[in-house]
Write a protein that binds this DNA or RNA. Structure first.
Lengths: 127, 127
DNA sequence: GTAGGAGCTGGAGTGCACTCCAGGTCAACC
DNA sequence: GGTTGACCTGGAGTGCACTCCAGCTCCTAC
């Protein structure tokens, strides 16, 4: 199964421009081309794109994704390094979640605090 | 108690440049000045700065923080609107956490997958 | 055979959130 | 009274991750 750039964009959630941009900066390998010179993405290509969007969603910077892509390109010999990268990235995602959760508590507090303002009309509380 | 800009930066985790930048764009009110014309932050100022860093950490864009700051500036009459903003923001933070957690599952899967590669030396698995 | 639409390239432009800089002031200490 | 160090201002520069554009080609449908 092959996919046009529009279909690849649709499937991955990236824009067409972003797909070409990712190719330009070496984040994805140049896909095959059809008889008219247009990009023709394979299922494997799509799988990689979708995985990239996960890394992006979790805040991995592009330069790190590119490093990962380059290791991947060098084959099975780099599997350990790649696993290590994902391992470390997972830790940072967990830390990020913890950070967000601690901020959530502050928001919860603030929101209930506003509730008091609204019900008792305490003056001067403007935070 | 008052604080120099360096102390405010230290306490809030923002840089000195960022403090001046936030003031310039109307995110924080201009603090008092000492006899030498230097910024002199109050405890209230610091409290606001710390709260801003929470909003920032949770990904609120500056333009929204500024909107919030402007409402706050208009006093208690805008408390409802501000509470509503925090309420909506909290929902987006929760959504973000859920998104990260779902990506974490993908990472977990990938990482255990790499484990298989390392132990059984399956060829061709390069994702 | 031509009009329309998708896709192509190289390169310029955008928005966000800072970050840095030059050139100056001010207070304190030696 | 000179040097040092923190701070001041307005404005320019940075890094990231896209996003847009002009001008072109190619295929399909009428």
């Amino acid at each position: 199964m092959t996919y046009s750039i529009a279909q690849a964009a649709e499937h991955s959630g990236l824009s067409i421009d972003t797909l070409r941009y990712y190719e330009r900066i070496g984040l994805v390998d140049p896909p095959a081309r059809d008889s008219g010179g247009r990009r023709s993405y394979s299922d494997d290509d799509l799988g990689w794109l979708v995985f990239l969007t996960r890394l992006r969603t979790t805040g991995m910077p592009i330069r790190m994704m590119r490093e990962y892509a380059q290791l991947r390109h060098r084959g099975a010999a780099t599997a350990g390094r790649r696993k290590q990268m994902l391992f470390e990235h997972r830790a940072s995602v967990r830390a990020r979640i913890a950070e967000l959760q601690s901020c959530l508590e502050v928001l919860d507090y603030k929101i209930s605090h506003y509730g008091e303002i609204e019900h008792t009309f305490i003056e001067g509380i403007t935070a």
